[in-house]
Every structure is written in structure tokens, then in C-alpha cells.
Design a protein around this nucleic acid. Structure first.
Lengths: 324, 324
DNA sequence: ACAATAGTGTCTCTGAGACAGTATGAT
DNA sequence: ATCATACTGTCTCAGAGACACTATTGT
């Protein structure tokens, strides 16, 4: 086994090609030091039996939903939600996990994510973005499993359609991700910065909490960033980290791209869009400035909201041409 | 084999926990539907023999080097360089590949990258960032290999030290990555945008070229981005894509972080820093505006350049505290 | 003196922040 | 008329772009 692994690694790195071995007869007919052409080499190639990891995809599926309105004429508030699935087997039995599954041969991690998304939500064409690959050897207590994580954004109207048709083991959780501590420690050799985020997930029946740390070590010529789960109540595996990574990606991109439009239905008001921005960023924005900023991302429609208990609002649609 | 895979996937997704099976005696003593506690489950857990991919890391190691100066008093220009390794075995015998290797059990992909970096360059503490995981099933003709790619930034003075101590099969290539076509195609159902980048890598002996396309499909509720290699002359595997992804990450981050400082030695002039920005972004910047912009990322030192054939320049050092 | 780079001052333009003011439909 | 939201106008401030100007060395 060790022998195979070594050979693999040598092949991958590549050694100095032996000049006489590199007789290039025709295109694709170069021979290696054993006198084999590429097709001959591949025909005799043995995969070897050294250890390989399992690779899974885990998905953070975001959507935005209205909360109930207090007052017949007040606008409903928006909440950011993620889909979680309660585990029915060990490990982490009874805990909540991100939807995901193993990548199969002859598919990409992205195809696995699309497949999983369809199985779990019935939704098909959505915004999907690869986040990060988590590879701590013991992140899954069963065996060596890496997770290539994805973020999906679903427009809220699509969600209404399929809500409830899936089993009870899946539930939408309202998400709050808040910076609760920021620290800067100055050593003689460098700086350590850390941020603590409190993650709270609430469904109708459960509340899950976790504390995630982002830690950055900056020294002369070395720089390292790591995520740690400081406490975790109800989430399976390292999924608190993955949700944290997704929130940071989402927040980062909201500011300088039109990514939030993927969370909107076909027609929406600018106030609704602003609420989505606010719920993602976790802060209030000024109306006038917001409208100027998103003006080029949307197109006016001729439709208006009705029966709102106050002045009707113009409805807009996404302007894809302006999205990068 | 199929049976094992199914079980795996069921475990990962989690099924609705059977209420009576969830007798929670003590913390960690929950029993599953077979009456097993978590530790009992893990003790009897069988990994199964369904197919798993190999996982490798590939690294884009960037550094900046001076080119020769034309004139005794002119400043040398900077060039962005990446390290490539000539393959000594099939597949892609004789082609140039990114340094990389397989991830071993009990290490993370990042640790594999660090190990590989040290083996290949002797450098140890550097800026390292995960880029993207490439998983097209046939990206490696031998077998199913995913690549978790990383970008490393090495300060040019560290590189001078070890240059040449490694074998001839490794070489630094000057990199040029240029947008040569931008296209917007409007369909009735959406928009397809594409960007063609020309990648040129030159070493003292070789010139490699590739044409990489970034293609974004935006339709009502669906959004998809993909990279394609349109032509490729001299690079192994899908490494042209990986280099493209690295360049885009680097360019993106240069604009709003201090990432470029990782490419600088301990003491440097602001003009040198500006040249690094320019060579990464591929465009000229205005001096006054640039100096205002980076002012908070650097600290003055009391040292100056000497024997320059013109007015000496103040040397600065990195101000880590201001880097996010 | 001259070549070449180092470094500064300042005008303009743009875009975000702030806030006040006007508009409009449902009850 | 009132409530609640829709929408606009405009002042200010900060930062980027543009460009001109002064400063300082080695040869």
C-alpha cells in the first residue's frame, strides 16, 4: 500500500523526464521511461489500494420568508432561513444537519449538490455557489469524510410551493448570526485577531445555538485563518462552521454584487429588497441611499402592490444584464 | 457495494427519528432504531467498499520578481511568477503542472498543501488560501481524482534564498492573464455572459499558452457559472483553469484587502508595492491616489534605498494590525 | 546640469450617509 | 383625517481620479 502511494505521488509531482525516454514520435505518442505511450500507460494503470476519503457535499440552502404581521397595515418583517434535517441515525442521532450526501462516481460535487437539492426541496434551477472544502480528518466520527460545501439561494415563492410536501424530518430554521466579540491580541511576533459569532437557529419546535470563532494569526511572513466551534447545541458534525462560512460569503457578496436578487420572486418591491439586504447584513440601511445603489440591478414594471393599507408600491423585476 | 452506499446516504441525510428508539438515558447514550448507543454504533461501523475518489491538492504559488533593468538609473520592472513542475511520467508526460500531491489520511487538505509547498520550495510560513475544489470525474485520465486547490503567496526575498537548490524539473514562469474578449448574448429566456482570458506563461526555456473561458448563464431563477479550457498548449490536466481561478481571486482581493503585502519583503518602497499592485491588476495606477489608499496598510521605517541613481526612497514595512 | 524617481497639494467628480419633505391608498 | 408606507430632493462628507508641482539623489 505504501508502495502504491509513493508511486502515485511521484507521478503527480512529475520527475525530470529522461531525455532519451521522451522520443516524441507523433502527437500523443511520447514514451515514458518504461517505453510506454500514454494510452499504454493508462491501460496498465492500477488504481492502487491506499486509503481514500469519502467526499460529501453539504448545502446551506437559504431563503427569505415573511414573518406574520402584527398589524393589518404594517409590513411583515423578513427572516433569513436555512433548511436543516434531523438525523435519524448515529452519529449525532437526533441532532440537526445540513442536507447533503456522498458524491458518486461520474458526477461532480456540484452535480451531487444539485441532486441533493432537488431530492430535498424539489427545487431545480437555483443559484448555487461552492463555498469551501472541509477536510479535518475526524470531522465525521465514522470514517474519513471530506465535505465540499455549497450555498444555494432560493426565491421565497418557489419555497412556498413545495413546503410541507417533504417529510417532517426537514425543517426551515430562522437564522441569526451575530458578531458578539472582536479581539486583537498583539504578541511580540505578530497579531492574533479573533471574532466570535453567535449562531442561533429557531424553528417552530427547536432552538439550536452555536458559538463559532474565526481566528486569524498574522506574523512576519506567516498568515493563517481558522474556524473553531466553541460551543454547539443541537447541530451535527461541524455544520456550525459551514453555516458560518456561508453567512460570511453571503454578507460579503451582498455588498458588492446583486446576489440578493436570487432570493427575490419575479416581482418585488424595493422595500422588500431592502429588507432582504437588511436581514442578511444584520443592520438597517437608509432608504434613499439604498434605492440609488440598487437602481441599476432592477427594472421597473407597471405593476403595483394592492390592498396594503397604505400607498401602493411599484413592483420591480431583476435586471440580469447588470449583474456581474 | 450498492447496499453500503445506500446505507451511508441514509445515515448522512438522517431519517425521522423513531420516537421510542430515542430513549435518552444519559448524555451520549441515545439509542438508534437498532438499540445501539453512539459508541456501540461506531464500534460496529463498517466503512464499506463503494467507490471513493482520490483527493489531491494543487497549489498556485505566486511570487513577484524583478526583471533586469534596461538602464542603470531606471527602476526594474516587476513580474508575477508561478512555480510549475515538468511531469516526468504519464499522463501529460513532459507537460508542466502545478505542484501538488495526494492528501494523506490524518491530514487536512491544507496540511497537504503546506507539506507540498515545503517539499517543493523549502518555504514554510506563507500566506495560504483555499481556492476551489475541482471535481470533474475525468479531469485526471488515470482515475477519479478531485483537486482541492490552494493559492500561496511568497515574498520575493524568501524565493531568492532557495532558488536553484531544487531540481531542474521545477521552474518559475512569468504569468500574463489578460481579458481578450467579453461577450453578452441575450436569449429570450435569459443572458449568457462570457469572458475569454489568455494565459501566457514564460520561463527561460518554455512558453505555455492557454485560453480559458468563464461563462455565466443567467436565466429566470437559474444561475450557473462554469470555466472551460478552450485551448491549451503545454499545461497538464485542468491546471489552466486553476491558474485562472487563482488569478481572479488574487485580483479580486488586491482591490479591497492588503493581500499583496504578502508578496513584499520586510522592507519595501511604496513604488515597489505599487508595481506589485499594477502587475497583479494588469493596469497602471495613479501614484498619489495609490499612496493614500495603502497608507494605513504600511508603517514608515527610518531606512531609505541607496545608490539608486536618483532620489532615495523611504522604506516601509507591513502594518499587520490594519489588515483584515 | 540632467535624468529619473520620490513625494505632495489640490481640484473635481462620484457615491454614500443623513435627513427632511412630499405623495398616496385603505380605513 | 389619519396611519403607514412610498418615494424624492438636497446637503454634506469621504474617497478616487487627474494632474501639476516640488524635492532629492548619482552621474
Amino acid at each position: 500500500m505504501k508502495r502504491d502511494e509513493e508511486r502515485e505521488i511521484r507521478d503527480q509531482k512529475g520527475m525530470l523526464p529522461d531525455e532519451e525516454a521522451m522520443l516524441q514520435n507523433e502527437e500523443g505518442m511520447i514514451r515514458d521511461r518504461n517505453g510506454l505511450t500514454e494510452s499504454q500507460f493508462l491501460a496498465q494503470y492500477d488504481v492502487g489500494d491506499y486509503e481514500r476519503p469519502s467526499v460529501a457535499t453539504d448545502m446551506v440552502i437559504f431563503t427569505v420568508m415573511d414573518t406574520e404581521k402584527d398589524n393589518y397595515r404594517k409590513l411583515p418583517e423578513k427572516a433569513l432561513r436555512v433548511l436543516l434535517i434531523q438525523r435519524g441515525g448515529h452519529p449525532y442521532l437526533g441532532k440537526w444537519a445540513l442536507p447533503g450526501g456522498f458524491v458518486r462516481p461520474n458526477e461532480t460535487t456540484e452535480q451531487a449538490a444539485v441532486r441533493e437539492l432537488r431530492e430535498e426541496t424539489g427545487v431545480d434551477h437555483v443559484y448555487l455557489e461552492q463555498l469551501y472544502t472541509f477536510s479535518e480528518p475526524h470531522r465525521d466520527p465514522r470514517t474519513w469524510v471530506m465535505s465540499c460545501s455549497y450555498m444555494a439561494l432560493i426565491d421565497s415563492s418557489q419555497v412556498e410551493l413545495q413546503a410541507g410536501d417533504d417529510a417532517d424530518h426537514a425543517a426551515w430554521f430562522t437564522l441569526s448570526y451575530r458578531l458578539i466579540r472582536e479581539q486583537k491580541e498583539i504578541l511580540e511576533s505578530g497579531v492574533i485577531r479573533s471574532w466570535h459569532y453567535e449562531l442561533i437557529l429557531t424553528s417552530e419546535r427547536d432552538t439550536l445555538t452555536a458559538l463559532v470563532e474565526r481566528k486569524m494569526t498574522l506574523t512576519e511572513s506567516a498568515t493563517h485563518t481558522e474556524y473553531n466551534i466553541l460551543s454547539n447545541n443541537g447541530l451535527a458534525f461541524d455544520h456550525a462552521k459551514i453555516i458560518g462560512a456561508a453567512m460570511e460569503r453571503l454578507r460579503g457578496k451582498v455588498e458588492y454584487t446583486g446576489i440578493a436578487l436570487h432570493l427575490m420572486p419575479q416581482l418585488f418591491t424595493l422595500t422588500a429588497l431592502q429588507q432582504v439586504y437588511e436581514v442578511i447584513l444584520g443592520k438597517e440601511l437608509l432608504k434613499a441611499a439604498f434605492r440609488r445603489k440598487v437602481a441599476h440591478l432592477v427594472m421597473e414594471s407597471d405593476h403595483y402592490t394592492e390592498n396594503a393599507g397604505h400607498r401602493p408600491s411599484r413592483l420591480y423585476r431583476r435586471n440580469w444584464e447588470m449583474m456581474t
